[in-house]
Write a protein that binds this DNA or RNA. Structure first.
Lengths: 301, 301
DNA sequence: TTTGCGCGTAAAGATCTTGTGACCCGGCGC
DNA sequence: GCGCCGGGTCACAAGATCTTTACGCGCAAA
């Protein structure tokens, strides 16, 4: 059937741009067993988790400010007040994954804990790896439900990248990038170093680049064209002969540059790509209509 | 007897797996232990669950049509193919709670199962009540975020969304959206960014979108048709080619736009999609009857 | 300076996406 | 039983986008 175009590229969906901070687990562990804590913390840190050991219960508000993904607690630490605490936390922080990890217990106790809102109940002694898997399962399930938050907009030179809209702008005017153009731009802006064509291709298309494939070059050309149309005085994508491309916003001082060159000033290629600028609109930036018109003609002509 | 209804689960008028019979658990159990099944089914039916025993694995598609909330499976029933099956089911039905309930196992096996996507792992023999609590915990977590139930009506452009009535209105006239249309509209209005089709599908249908599935497009088309019928001068759902859809109320300046085009002003989409407007009723909005008539003819013709 | 290769550019053809209407199917009320 | 309704699939057509190819120019090494 025609619907079975299964060979289509998974490329689009594959590039989740905002993986960094999102997938990092932030969790707190309320326990008093030093050995357990040590083993666990070692493993968690190896995984790159943000890990916070607790020896006493924190208020719900305190937990809120910690922006946790998960809380592991040993009910034994709290004694009889533990049930109330568990219930309170689960009710107050419905988005928090709560895993009870405690010593031997009865079925009734486990049922009670789960009914109060715990997401899982692990009996100590347990293997750290298993506990972590259980935590991850709970967090995973929770994350799936919440709307993924994409990266905030970033500005480079005169352009602004908006991952939430799959688009780049100059002075609030869209550059009209296609999906693939945007992905390449987004990839380039996300890395300060030179990216080889094969690297770009593999990360955008999802599979290895065939020898002699010029697709990346063509897309870079289109990108440059649109960037130039919207922001003519800047140079964004630099070619590294025989290697690949590198993103770095650089102003083309049409006159000053020549002067510099004559004078011997080495302003030619400052390696330093400044950190993303906060304000994308320098005073001398062209009016919206100008930018739009340039873009129009560039695309039409 | 539970076997009696084993061909199909009893009708489920509200197609929305998420909304209507919200508290009723729909689950399937893949196991071969008669005693276990009997105890479990007894307890589940006492709780009013829709329960379906399985003795052999069903395809992902078959599970989809069952509109389950949860699946309990004993990996021992499947033998070595169980891992693949588990992985496949979890990948295809991200919204399904999967609980592995099986005999004695190693830590490595449990870790593997959880990593493949299982939400919990219970070791047999186990108490039915505890298993049910674990299932409920998994399902609960899944449901929690399904729809951030906003009771408050919200207005965008000329339309008003009433989550409590599962309907959208223009000047108090219903747009006659079907349940699924409303869910999609509600999802779109709840996010300012571009939503990929896969995202929409997964959040509304509850499982992964098959490649080449056009359902989202079709529903967007129907939605647009009804929105246009009720509010012809506005554009609400914007297509982002190669990506997905985005909701943003925009007025179509039928005349001014043409002028703009002639004058050379570009149609470049202005970045600012204003925040949901507070006053949804511009003075020139059509009378109720007009809106109703338009809607009528649009739907009939 | 010359040579070979990498790169910029452009355009045409191939391919993919989307809008759209028609159609099929199962459930439900009459 | 029968028609209606909502949900979902299919096929087609129009665009939009991507890939391929061809042609020169510029860069680097000899």
């Amino acid at each position: 059937m025609s619907t079975e175009r299964s060979d289509t590229l998974p490329g689009y969906s594959a590039t989740a741009p905002s993986q960094r901070a999102q997938n990092r687990l932030r969790l707190a562990v309320l326990d008093r067993d030093p050995g357990f804590m040590q083993v666990l913390s070692k493993r968690l840190e190896a995984l790159g988790c943000e890990y916070r050991p607790l020896s006493a219960p924190l208020s719900a508000d305190a937990l809120v400010t910690m922006r946790l993904n998960a809380l592991v607690l040993d009910l034994a630490v709290l004694g009889p007040t533990g049930w109330g605490y568990l219930e309170q936390i689960c009710a107050r922080l419905p988005g928090l994954a709560v895993v009870v990890c405690t010593g031997p217990s009865s079925v009734a106790q486990r049922v009670r804990g789960l009914r109060l809102g715990a997401d899982a109940w692990i009996t100590k002694p347990c293997h750290a790896e298993e506990l972590i898997c259980v935590i991850e399962a709970a967090v995973r399930r929770h994350r799936r439900a919440e709307m993924p938050i994409l990266d905030a907009a970033q500005s480079f030179g005169e352009i602004t990248i908006r991952p939430d809209l799959y688009q780049a702008y100059v002075n609030e005017v869209s550059l009209e990038l296609t999906a693939r153009e945007f992905e390449i731009l987004n990839l380039l802006t996300g890395s300060d170093r030179v990216l080889r064509r094969e690297e770009i291709y593999e990360r955008i298309w999802g599979y290895a680049m065939a020898h002699g494939d010029r697709s990346v070059d063509v897309f870079v050309r289109k990108l440059r064209q649109k960037l130039r149309a919207g922001s003519p005085q800047w140079n964004y994508i630099h070619t590294h002969f025989g290697v690949g491309y590198r993103f770095a916003p650089e102003r083309e001082n049409s006159v000053e540059e020549e002067l510099d060159l004559i004078t011997g000033g080495t302003a030619a290629t400052p390696l330093e790509s400044p950190t993303p600028m906060a304000s994308p609109a320098p005073p001398e930036s062209p009016a919206q209509l100008d930018a739009a018109a340039r873009l129009d003609s560039a695309l039409a002509g």
